[in-house]
């Protein structure tokens, strides 16, 4: 049984989420993976640290999915967000949306990711290659 909205220190794998959201009514499953990149504005990044107010973040992720469901005809949604230290190339967030048709699935996945950046109490600390670190806020 896959929980739909999760904050975890464990590595993320999209395959079980894709399987969890898909029903026979769905002709589309969109997966967005947010991945740790090795630079920001040309400055080299060594690694990232993510932190969450987990007790609040989980219900906020559920609220965001409900907002998307009110706007587009979509089916099941899974959002899993990783916290702790993440290396370059690791997946920080997975947004997986099923829908009968692809337009709604694409639009809802983009909306959910934008809203996570706006209101989900999850923070990212950039650790630069030169040793400095700062919260991205």
């Amino acid at each position: 049984m896959i929980e739909p909205f999760v904050i975890t220190t464990e590595p993320l794998d999209p395959a079980p989420l894709v399987a969890a959201v898909q029903t026979p009514e769905d002709g589309a499953v969109v997966t967005f993976s947010g991945v740790v990149r090795n630079h920001f504005d040309g400055r080299p990044t060594a690694f990232l640290v993510y932190e969450a107010y987990t007790e609040m973040a989980v219900p906020v992720l559920r609220q965001i999915a409900d907002e998307a469901r009110a706007r587009w005809p979509i089916g099941r949604v899974c959002v899993h967000h990783r916290v702790g230290r993440l290396e370059i190339g690791e997946t920080a967030v997975l947004v997986v949306v099923a829908a009968p048709h692809r337009d709604a699935a694409f639009a809802a996945a983009a909306y959910i990711m934008d809203r996570i950046k706006e209101i989900a109490p999850i923070w990212k600390q950039e650790h630069w290659a030169d040793g400095a670190a700062e919260w991205r806020e």
Binding site: Y50, Y53, M56, D114, I116, K117, E118, I119, A120, P121, I122, W123, K124, W135, R136, E137
Partner: peptide
């Protein structure tokens, strides 16, 4: 109570 600083940056 929590005062939530602006959340993680990023570009579309």
């Amino acid at each position: 109570v929590a005062f939530i600083p602006p959340v993680s940056g990023g570009r579309r």
